[in-house]
Amino acid sequence: MFSLAVFFQSFGPLFWAARYTLLISVLGIGLGVVIGTLICAARLSPYPPLRRFAAIWVSFLRGVPLLVQLLVFYYALPVIGLDVPAMVAAVVTVGICASAYISEIWRGAIAALPKGQAEAAVAIGMTPVDVWTRVILPQAVTLSLPALINELILLVKASSLVSVVGILEITRASQAQAATTFRPLEVYIAAACIYLLINLCLAALGRYLEHRTAV
């Protein structure tokens, strides 16, 4: 029999654990946007060594599973003498992994802009900085919003992987709940509901932002 009581009781601890899920996802995507923007800039720069570095960065991070990256990063840090909290290791790994995808999202959006957009700005004498900040990036951000929200939703789900380094986020917390209540089905369905709730909110936020930036 499905126990509604266990199902509802599970929400308390799982919501509490959701703060880690959200923290890791939001900080991760924040870090991912910062690093991803730099990688994208390197990828589009006129300097071949920078372009190569960015290309390798992207293929390496896209080619290795996040779970493996997490484990490598978590166990590699003590070897080089760095003792960082699991939370920091998790955010940094998630951010670095996301940066590979985000730099490709930027690159695609920038490539989708007609060349004439920048040319019109160059022709009236705008500086390269103005061309980027006033003409290219505002349009690229709008174009890439759906893909960025998509990436954020993927990260929320991928954050379940950080349970392997001992962070008590939703998945890890539900495993613990399941072990103490012996009611895994109820607990995991509750966990699924929380993930779904978070991601529906993010999708709504995405629609709102898309609507606001639409021209």
Partner: peptide, 20 residues
């Protein structure tokens, strides 16, 4: 070059207005 371009206006086939 930017200084010289300031006094040269250009109009393109595809208009190239900034849509945002």
């Amino acid at each position: 070059l930017r200084e010289m371009r300031r006094s040269i206006g250009m109009v393109f086939q595809q208009f190239n207005l900034w849509p945002h």
